[in-house]
Amino acid sequence: MADDLLTIADRTFSSRLIMGTGGAPSLEVLEQALRTSGTELTTVAMRRINPAARGSVLEVLQRCGIGVLPNTAGCFTAGEAVLTARLSREALGTNWVKLEVIADERTLLPDPIELLDAAETLVDDGFVVLPYTNDDPVLARKLEDVGCAAVMPLGSPIGSGLGIRNPHNFQLIVEQANVPVILDAGAGTASDVALAMELGCAAVMLATAVTRAQEPALMAEAMRKAVEAGRLAHRAGRIPKRFHAEASSPMEGRASFDPEAPAF
């Protein structure tokens, strides 16, 4: 929305949906989904060059006019992540990096100690660092303190589609943050995304929920609308939850009927 831009570091975006490119069955399906999603920033991974590869995800992003956000997926240590980020800066000409330092392959959960270490090093090296982090308010604050341009807490494990397992933690993170809070990982369907935005997230990052959906482009549209709906609801200010009902029609001025008189 033109009057409600997302600002991260020195860039502004009218879309609050950051997409990933992993998991799509083909580049054609990916391109259609990305275009439908309306995203303006999309992640790629850095891997050994494959001379036999046909087509390139970079060409897709270029054709769609979408900004590229390299990640450090697959890194287990701060050292690996820092080197991967430096390679991505060299290869892609961007100092933005989505920093991922995972602890193990079973959970793909972030290793908080390595993550903070890598974040500090990369910020000092001039990177705009967007860290994939646990839904831990203390870690989120420390990542902000070392200069990260956003924090990207996970709703639930990568690819799990389990949504936001701890909404209260998200509220705590949002409440204290002075940088954008971006839901990263766990979104399975549109309602997860709407909830993230209602909780005050500035944006949502997702890949699997769209790329592995039965109809990726349809789900991309659903996610785009869910981001917008959730954002609007957040700005509008929801009503407080009540234990009992509260009538929306007035009780005064009702007609007086004999309750015993049969009407039919």
């Binding site: 790629v44 050994r48 590229v68 991967t84």
Partner: peptide, 10 residues
Amino acid sequence: VEILTAVQGG
């Protein structure tokens, strides 16, 4: 020597 490029991911 490691030679990397961008691929689908994330």
